[in-house]
Design a protein around this nucleic acid. Sequence first.
DNA 1: TCGGCGATGTTGACATTGCTCACATGGACC
DNA 2: GGTCCATGTGAGCAATGTCAACATCGCCGA
Lengths: 169, 169
Amino acid sequence: MSTSPKPYHHGDLRAALLDAADSLLDAGGDGAVSLREAARIAGVSPTAAYRHFADKEALLAALAARHFAQFGAALGEAGLDAQGIAYVRFALARPGRFRLMFGPLLARAKAHPELQAASSAAFDALTRAAGGKEAAIRAWALVHGLSHLLLDGALSDEVSPEGLLTVPR
Amino acid sequence: MSTSPKPYHHGDLRAALLDAADSLLDAGGDGAVSLREAARIAGVSPTAAYRHFADKEALLAALAARHFAQFGAALGEAGLDAQGIAYVRFALARPGRFRLMFGPLLARAKAHPELQAASSAAFDALTRAAGGKEAAIRAWALVHGLSHLLLDGALSDEVSPEGLLTVPR
DNA sequence: TCGGCGATGTTGACATTGCTCACATGGACC
DNA sequence: GGTCCATGTGAGCAATGTCAACATCGCCGA
């Protein structure tokens, strides 16, 4: 009742757009995110988004950054094995987010400082958990590859992430 | 001179479209492939493509299948270490193809028998080269993850694939 | 040999998307 | 209380995927 019917100014459109994009991402994957649809969900005109993001890529970058922050925090304090399992779990539970975060966009991170910072922070957590640098990379690559292969259904279904990951002595 | 100026029927449009899509893929990556542009390159009207592919996804699937065949053949006879290095090299040399082949499309392979067959064939080659099944998966995941991380620029530039891959005793 | 039919291409159209430009609105600050 | 600037609106453009109706050709049987 009391909620004003349509305030011209939205309050926090930026966050609203990110939330909308997020739901699209989780629902339909990477390609299902559309600026216009996000605006629609946020109840705002298509062009309003451009007051907050330079273009679609910027929106996606901000979204990815947001998720990297969460991701890094979640991994943060766990041991190496636990991190690995959490990593794969995350990928399988949220394929859209995973692919956005580790997709082609990441290669263009230097154009998006937010993303750059958030992702390196997460990576540092990983590197710290593994001992040396080489070992870290190897462990990370293993887990990352496993995530991708599982996600893409390249592995027969009989494979369990835990099995593969807890053995690797 | 002698080439008829514009035969109504193209000859082998299907292959021509695949070639066109391929060049777009190599040039601009996954997202740069457009049905219309491919048709343009093939010198044909936009809708002609639909005589040969149900939709854009089908085109992409056929393309991926084609590359899987090549890929599998290339890996085919090499030893495990050599395979690993070739794998990573391929990813770095042809990011577009790699991402197409191992991207979200692969997860939808059951909708595209061609792709299904070609990819499993390639995977079998991998599995055969590594000894046991678990070892194969682990090796594959390592190499696959490394490819992705390098591609996405997630690894500091100082890392050399060969270094990571030839040591892992 | 020729006539028709199915495979292949073409035209035209529609909805959707990313993005730009010119304009409207209204809250924060003097 | 008045003004400025961040925020939002609307119309519009080019491009894309896709559909439906129509055109053209070449191969196959009468």
